[in-house]
């Protein structure tokens, strides 16, 4: 099986990695880079726990090959806070008690972050539809939706 030498920027840091053909971006992040904030909930693009940004757009990292990330910018949940300062969205999630078990939270944050980047003042319906690919079994979603609204009011992602 082919091994590919790739260059990828993850959370602002340039990485040079050798990845086998069948390695997913999710496996690369977790197993090669130790970025375990991104979670594996289904390996099939259904649950959204593995959602990361690639060139600013959310994708299911379980359905993308690591080799496809060559030359691209990847942002994971670990890249949302800067110098220990939480993003408005992260703070809003805490403020609304919109986290319970926390397993969906990283992917949820990434999807919501991307939404606020493309639609700074989303409607409730836009938020619901933007988060359809991120399953949560604990919260019932409403607090997450409210947290996104709060972050939007405070000026975005």
């Amino acid at each position: 099986m082919g091994i590919h030498s790739i260059t990828v920027t993850v959370n602002g840091a340039k990485e040079r990695l050798d990845v086998p053909s069948n390695m997913t971006l999710l496996q690369m992040l977790r197993d090669k880079l130790g970025l375990t904030g991104t979670k594996n909930g289904c390996s099939a693009g259904e649950c959204g726990a593995c959602t990361v940004l690639v060139d600013g757009e959310p994708v299911n990292s379980c359905l993308m090959l690591a080799v496809e990330a060559d030359g691209r910018q990847v942002t994971t949940v670990e890249g949302l806070a800067h110098d220990g300062q939480l993003s408005a969205l992260q703070e809003a999630i805490i403020e609304h008690n919109a986290v319970q078990c926390g397993f969906c939270t990283p992917g949820m944050l990434i999807s919501a972050h991307a939404l606020l980047e493309r639609a700074p003042r989303p409607t409730e319906q836009q938020i619901r539809e933007a988060l359809v690919g991120n399953l949560c079994r604990c919260t019932g979603y409403l607090r997450i939706i409210e947290a996104v609204q709060t972050a939007a009011k405070k000026g975005g992602a």
Partner: peptide, 9 residues
């Protein structure tokens, strides 16, 4: 189709 992140791929 599916979800926003799936539609990105």
């Amino acid at each position: 189709v599916a979800s926003y992140q799936v539609r990105n791929r």
